[in-house]
Measured scan of single mutants.
Amino acid sequence: KEMRNAYWEIALLPNLNNQQKRAFIRSLYDDPSQSANLLAEAKKLNDAQA
């Protein structure tokens, strides 16, 4: 469930391009235990690109 939530949050971040989203989501599938960390990194990048 945590992975699914992280997937959708990443997919809906407005300032990431599709390539960036795909990279984060690929990492999510590679290591679901890192969901919270990956989401935090994606949000950080999203904010930096705002």
Rank of each mutant, 00 (worst) to 15 (best):
K1L: 09
K1M: 08
K1W: 02
K1R: 07
E2P: 07
M3A: 12
M3L: 14
M3G: 12
M3H: 13
R4D: 11
R4F: 15
R4A: 13
R4V: 14
N5G: 12
N5I: 12
N5D: 10
N5Y: 11
A6G: 04
A6D: 04
A6R: 05
A6M: 15
Y7S: 12
Y7C: 06
Y7H: 13
Y7E: 15
W8G: 04
W8N: 13
E9G: 06
E9F: 14
I10P: 00
I10W: 00
I10S: 00
I10C: 01
A11I: 14
L12I: 11
L12P: 01
L12K: 14
L13P: 00
L13D: 00
L13V: 01
L13N: 02
P14G: 05
P14W: 02
N15W: 10
N15M: 05
N17K: 04
N17S: 12
N17H: 07
N18Y: 14
Q19E: 11
Q19R: 06
Q19S: 12
Q19H: 13
Q20G: 00
Q20Y: 01
K21W: 01
K21S: 01
K21D: 01
R22S: 15
R22V: 14
R22P: 02
A23G: 10
A23P: 01
A23N: 10
F24R: 02
F24D: 01
I25T: 03
I25S: 02
I25K: 02
R26D: 15
R26C: 14
S27H: 08
S27A: 15
S27K: 14
S27G: 08
L28P: 00
L28I: 12
L28N: 00
L28D: 00
Y29K: 14
Y29G: 06
Y29S: 11
Y29P: 01
D30G: 07
D30H: 14
D30P: 02
D31V: 04
D31H: 12
D31S: 09
D31Q: 07
D31K: 06
P32S: 04
S33Q: 07
Q34F: 05
S35D: 03
S35K: 14
S35P: 03
S35Y: 12
A36Q: 12
A36K: 13
N37H: 09
N37R: 13
L38Y: 04
L38F: 04
L39S: 03
A40F: 08
E41I: 06
E41W: 08
E41C: 09
A42F: 01
K43E: 04
K43S: 06
K44L: 07
K44F: 08
K44A: 10
L45G: 01
L45R: 03
L45W: 03
L45E: 03
N46E: 01
N46R: 01
N46F: 01
D47G: 06
D47T: 07
D47E: 09
D47P: 01
D47Q: 09
A48C: 08
A48E: 15
A48T: 12
Q49N: 07
A50F: 06
A50E: 12
A50R: 11
A50N: 09
